[in-house]
Computed example of a mutant assay.
Amino acid sequence: MQETRMNFETLTVRREAAVLFTEIAAPPMNLLGPELVRDLVSLIQQAEADDNIRVIVFKSGDPDYFISHVDVTRIGAYREAAATLTGEASLGMLFRYLSSSRLITIAQIEGRVRGAGSEFALACDMSFAAHESAIFGQPEVGFGLIPGAGGIQHLTRQMGRARALETILSGRDYDAELAERYGWINRALPAAALGEFVASLAHRIAGFPSAAQAQIKERVNAIALAPAAEFRSDSDRFGEAARNPDAQGRIQTAMKHGFQTRDAELDLAQMLEDLGGH
């Protein structure tokens, strides 16, 4: 199969027919910072401009991290990067744009995906995870924050009220099996079968008429995708909370315990518990 390539700073993109296979590579731990946001914006723009591209598959080049979470030291910068696509300095609005796009997006998840990383995966049209390695979490509550990029909207609709409250309020990590049972993802698969399954599904979808796909997404989104105002509200609340002195203090304490370093965040849920009532 003939392949063409698109190159970015934090993404490696391989094209096969109507499918883009996109590998995230933003060392040291795939933090969602301005560089990755800029590349995602550029990728979306280029893909939408090419009518022959139907599906984008996102995976990680790091076996331990899909997307860890936002870089909390660069909130203003990544928000500005998001604004270049939507006109709004909001990661939530960027992700909602992706959900609304004619493009079909699939997250192929191995490793940890927390916070805005989880919210990115939720914004994709489908997500499939490696049974052995995928870990999901919304740790914002441990810092006095709320999920600000669509997590509340998506998880409540997909899980129901009680499970959404459990996962968001606990700040715990959830393995792929439980994430599947709760509705966080479509399904968990053995790592050895994951790539082949996702590639086959992506090419199958890409082979069907695009007009029908666009109408199906539009109708499903009319039922299941929260209004833009809800995403905007959560984004604003996250930004306000992030400026709160208590949240800033918690973040600084977490930094001293290794927050935003790949080894310490292998068990971020335990780190949050250790921070306790700071």
Score class of each variant (00 low, 15 high):
231 F>K: 09
144 G>Y: 06
14 R>A: 07
103 L>C: 04
207 G>S: 10
193 A>G: 06
211 A>E: 11
61 G>Y: 06
185 I>E: 02
42 S>Y: 08
51 D>L: 12
46 Q>W: 00
130 A>G: 10
5 R>Q: 15
101 S>D: 14
23 E>H: 09
249 G>A: 09
228 A>R: 05
94 L>M: 07
71 D>H: 14
38 R>F: 00
199 A>K: 10
33 G>A: 14
2 Q>T: 14
189 L>E: 08
11 L>F: 05
147 P>C: 11
145 L>N: 03
144 G>S: 04
164 A>S: 13
173 D>N: 11
127 S>K: 01
134 A>R: 09
33 G>H: 13
29 M>N: 12
159 M>R: 03
81 A>D: 14
45 Q>R: 09
208 F>K: 03
22 T>Y: 02
147 P>V: 05
215 Q>C: 05
110 E>P: 03
238 F>L: 15
173 D>R: 10
270 Q>F: 10
114 R>F: 14
249 G>N: 14
67 I>W: 12
41 V>S: 05
138 Q>V: 10
144 G>D: 02
91 L>S: 08
156 T>P: 03
225 L>S: 01
173 D>K: 04
262 R>F: 11
259 F>N: 03
207 G>A: 05
105 T>Q: 02
230 E>C: 04
228 A>M: 06
232 R>A: 10
71 D>W: 13
135 I>W: 14
87 G>D: 09
278 H>E: 04
68 S>A: 06
62 D>S: 01
215 Q>R: 13
154 H>D: 07
44 I>R: 10
138 Q>P: 10
124 C>Q: 04
121 A>N: 02
151 G>S: 05
266 L>Y: 02
167 T>S: 13
110 E>I: 15
121 A>D: 01
169 L>G: 07
158 Q>W: 11
114 R>D: 05
49 A>G: 07
251 I>E: 12
57 V>I: 01
146 I>A: 01
276 G>K: 11
157 R>H: 12
274 D>R: 07
39 D>T: 09
173 D>W: 03
105 T>R: 02
27 P>I: 05
